[in-house]
Each structure stands twice: as structure tokens, then as C-alpha cells.
Design a protein around this nucleic acid. Structure first.
Lengths: 180, 180, 180, 180
DNA sequence: CATGAATGAGCTTTCATTCAT
DNA sequence: CATGAATGAAAGCTCATTCAT
């Protein structure tokens, strides 16, 4: 799955062949079929796993350790960064595959749940009157879209990940969605 | 090329077959090869064309009709929206294919020039002291990342494009990059 | 037909495309189909034409102007050389295509007639007691096989055609088939 | 390779399709590509193999067991016959493909080495004063050309291979190149 | 009468998948 | 349980042939 993730993230599902994955994983091509019914099962399994890890990373109790929404946002952003740091490929794989024709219902559902988590955080912020009253999905687009492209650029070497960079982006995202 | 664009945007390069394109374009599969040496030539030609149209759309003289940077940002955002409205598929195609393994040097160069245009606008804003001093590519990530995901969600039906929505996102993006 | 001959001789029937012939002949591909029903008609027509020219070249009355069989052989060899000189490609085309799967009955018949001419000359020689009593087709293999390979080597540049060379080969061929 | 040899010998390279070879070899078409990168690799590999077998067949120590050049010629001719008997298709395949556009450098080189062996034998005969002083390649054309056409006719059924036939052709070839 | 754009059958080649080892 | 050789369906691509111009 690790090998598949890297390849899917870099070359896409259809651009990755099973023998490629096998070679990269240093197993025989047939071995893959002992764990997954077919290539589609593999992407779906992998997708669901990645989304799960993403969800788990976000579910950080400490978020609620403070009543300050800005600080909560900081915690969440920190978790996003943590996930991206440890799983850039997973992040990009999820982003580039989340509406693919080969995803099954379970994958779509799991992804929707992840979106739900995002939405919840923002809606809560709105309720408390710190985040501006605006279409939640649009707010997600702003924060998550920025975040994904940021790490795409970091991965490709255009940008270098530094505390200053991350802090700056976090501040920008916050300014984008907060009430001014 | 229109047929190829839609399919590439929706299924990716490797997920799109030449017969699919041919059928969608209502021509014989062989006909495609009278205009493109091979499938790779087709994506590259298409990519370059889309980037060109994008560049052209951005080159809007009116931008400089006002000294007000906020208003300039508005014009630019408006142009982005115009391009997205007329060419959603082109926008998403560019975003999902811009670092693909099958792009040739010309494609990469053309895309870099587009990035250059983006950078220029932001750097200018910084010079005038309205946009915050921050890594230009990071600022691009924020605005362009937001913008792309916004239209991805609009295209998928999650969001509905309305003047209010666009205005809100524009305001958010502006708040993200301006000096507060 | 000239263009087709060169290409067929050099690349074979299946290795030559109709557009290749058209380009080499500086006509449109469609034009060829105004003169030949299809590619197969073209090879067959060409083959028959070449064999005809070959036959005509051999039918040299002067052959019978002398009762001396060695001299007659000289005349025939001279005619072979004449044909090869003026139509190397035709010679090689005939040799490499004479038992091809796409030749029609007429082509086979015409080629058999050419063989008949060869046989007649040799049988006559045997009757007069100058050429050795041996399977006629074997004698043809010896003289014609030598001759064809000779010109193949000349065409490819391995050998250079000179009066001495031709005289020597003629003498050798004569020694091969005459009664010693 | 056996299946390919027969088909290439009978229909030529371009007239033979990979599925034809696969069917004849009773394997799947894809299987061929596990052993050869492509069709061109296949012809080249086959060509080199055939030439190798031919070379090996000629390298018969017994040749030097007698100082008599006529007897040596007999041995060589015998080896040619042996090769032709066991590999008619290889003989004809080599002859009809030896200057084809799809042969790579290695193939050309290997074939040149075979020619070198032929040349050596004849040059040696000249040195000893038994074979006539004449362009070596022309002598090859005579003997080898005769030989190839002989077996082409045998294969096609025009001639029947008998000891008498072979003996007669050998004698004729000898007479063609010896000093009279 | 000449043309060459268009076509689709069929070629070369790839690759997800199977299965004997 | 792991493997990778074998497979054939389907991909990318070519080219003989047609036909509107």
C-alpha cells in the first residue's frame, strides 16, 4: 500500500500499473492479488485508509482544551500540517482522487465524513461568532484549497517548508475566514 | 480538442482512451492521428492551448486603469472567474496535469510563464505596500488554491455559483493576502 | 509504377505503403486508385509488366544469328546484363516476389512463361550436345541464381560493375553448365 | 522463434503479424513480448541466431583433414547442404532479409562475419592456385547464388533433392570457380 | 480526372489478472 | 503463502481504401 500510494500520488491511478507497484514494493505481481481482489479494490482500500488516517489525525482532543477559536484553528491547522508532513502523498492522493470514477460508495462515504468533520469545525466557529457567516463549503475551499496547493508546491520543491512559511499561511487562512 | 479536454479533466490522461475521445468528438479514431502524432502530443498541445487561453484572459488592460490595488485585485479575480466560467474543464485540466510525467519541455515552460504572470501581480502589490510581505508562491498557493478548489466544488455541484459566493471568496482571498 | 517498383524492390510489398508510393510518385494517394483497383492489383500489374519487359529483352533475334552455342550463351548473358543494367529494381523485384502469397494466377503464369524461355535455351543447348545433361531447372538455378546475386551485390555497392567482372561471371557460368 | 522463422521465410517480415506467429507457436500474443521487446527485436534476434547456426555449421574441422582443395570444396559444399537440409527456412530467411531496413547493427555485423568466412575459403583456394584469380565476392555470388536458388526451387517443389542433383550442382559450381 | 481528409479494420503493444509451481 | 510466466482483452497507432471536393 505504501508503494501504491506513492505511485498513485505521482502518476495517478490509470498511470500506475500493477507490476510497477509490485516492483516498487519488492513483491511479485501475483502477491498483490492475495490481498486485494483487483486494482480497483486496492485504490479504494488505500483511499479509505488514507482518509481514515487523515480523520484520525484531525480528531485531536486538545482542540477543545481551549475556548479560544483562534487557538482552536491553530490546533486544527497544526494537525493538517502534521498529516501533510507525515503523509504528503496521502494528502495529494486524496485530493487528486476524491472524485474519481473508480471510487466505490464506501470511499465516497468515508470522504464525505471527512468533509463533515471540516464542516463541523467551521460551523462551530460561526456559531461562536468568530468565523464569518459564509457558505461553509466555500470556507473549506479557501482553507483546504490553499493548504493542498501549499503542500503540492512544497513537495515539488517550489516552496520550502519552514515554521515561518506555515505560520504565515495559517495567519492568511485565518484572516480569510474570520470576521474582521 | 474540446472532447479531449472534457475527458482529460474528468478522467485524467491515462484514464482517457483515444477511442473515447474519438467517439465523443464523433470522428474516427484514426482522424485524431492526422492532427497529433500521438496521444502525448495531444495532451501537450491541449495543455499549451489551455494555458495560453488562461494567460490571454488574464492580460486585461483594464487592470491598470485604476491605481487602487484592491480594485486591481478585483479585476484579476474577475478575469479568473471569467476563465473558469468559460473553461472550467480547462482550469481543472491545467491544475490536475501541471506536473504530469508526460508533459514536454514546452508545456512546462508555458506553464511557468503563467505562474510568472501571477507572481508579477502579487510582487507589484507588495511593492506598493498593500499586499503583505510574504513568499509570493505561498500567496499564489492561497489565492489560486482556494480558487481552483472553489470551482472544483462548483463543477461537482457541491456549491452553486452565485455573485454572492464569488464576492465572498474574493473578499476572503483579499483578506488572506492584504496587509491588515 | 516506377515509384512502386523501387519501393517494392527495396522494402518489399508489405513494407511499402500506398502513401509512400504516392509521395515518391508525387501524386495523391487517391490517384493510384484511379489506375489500380487496390494495392494487390498494383503489385500484380507491376510484376507482370516487369516479367514482360524481361521476356522481351531476352527475345533477341540475334541469338539465332550464330550456330555456335557458346556465342548464343554470350548473347543471352548479354541480354540478361542489359535488362539488369536498365532495370536492376525490376530484376530484384521479380526475384524477391516471384512466389509471394499475393501474386495472382496471371502473375504466376507469366513468370512460368519466363522460366519456359530459360528452359528452352538450355534444353536446346543440351540437344546440340554442348551443355551438360543435367536437370534443366538446376542449370537455371546455377546461372540465374549467380546472376541475381551478382546484381544484388552490385546494387548494394559490394561489387562494381565492370566489363571484366561481367566477362568473368559469364565465363564461370558457362563453365558451370557446359560439357567439359 | 521456430514459428517466426517459418513465417518470415515465407511471407517476409512485414507480411507476418505477431498474432500469426503467436498462433503458429500456440502461445498468446502477449507471451512473445515477454521474450522480445518488440517485433523488430524478434527479427534481429532470429536473424543473428540463424546466421550463428550457419557459421557454426560451416566451421567443420574435417575441412582441413585433406590438402586437396577439391576435396575441401566438397566438404564445404556438404556443410552448406547440411545446413540447408536442416534449416531451409533459415537459409531463405537469411537470404531474403540480409539487407532489410529493420536490421540493426549487430545483425549486419554478424552477417558480415559470415561473408568473411566465405571469403576466407575462396581466398585460400586462390592462394593455393586451384581457384581462379577473380573477384572473391563475384565467386561467392556464383556459388552461393546458385546454392540459394537451388534450395528455393527444392523447397517450392520445382526440384527434388537427390544425391545426383546435389552432386551435379556441386560439380558445376566447382567448374565455375576452378582454374580450367 | 486528381486529391487528400476521413475512416475503421487490423496491427503492434500493454497490462490486469490467473494459476501452476 | 509467494511468485512470475502466460494470457487475451483492449489500448495506441497505421494504413488501405473511399469519396466529397
Amino acid at each position: 500500500m505504501k508503494a501504491a500510494l506513492v505511485l498513485f500520488a505521482e502518476r495517478g491511478y490509470d498511470g500506475t500499473t500493477v507490476p510497477m507497484i509490485a516492483e516498487s514494493a519488492k513483491v511479485g505481481a501475483g502477491t498483490i492479488y492475495r490481498y486485494f481482489a483487483n486494482k480497483e479494490s486496492l485504490v479504494n482500500g488505500l483511499f479509505q485508509h488514507c482518509v481514515q488516517v487523515f480523520s484520525d489525525t484531525l480528531k485531536y482532543e486538545a482542540i477543545h482544551s481551549t475556548p479560544d477559536i483562534r487557538e482552536q484553528f491553530h490546533y486544527i491547522f497544526q494537525r493538517l500540517v502534521k498529516f501533510a508532513d507525515n503523509n504528503v502523498n496521502a494528502l495529494l492522493f486524496i485530493e487528486s482522487h476524491n472524485s474519481a470514477y473508480y471510487l466505490d460508495d464506501r470511499s465516497k462515504q468515508v470522504f464525505d465524513e471527512l468533509l463533515g468533520t471540516f464542516r463541523q469545525v467551521l460551523e462551530n466557529g460561526k456559531k461562536v461568532g468568530v468565523i464569518k457567516e459564509f457558505n461553509t463549503d466555500a470556507l473549506i475551499a479557501i482553507v483546504y484549497g490553499s493548504f493542498v496547493l501549499l503542500f503540492k508546491l512544497i513537495k515539488s520543491g517550489v516552496l520550502t517548508e519552514t515554521p515561518d512559511l506555515l505560520e504565515g499561511v495559517e495567519e492568511s487562512c485565518w484572516n480569510a475566514i474570520r470576521i474582521l
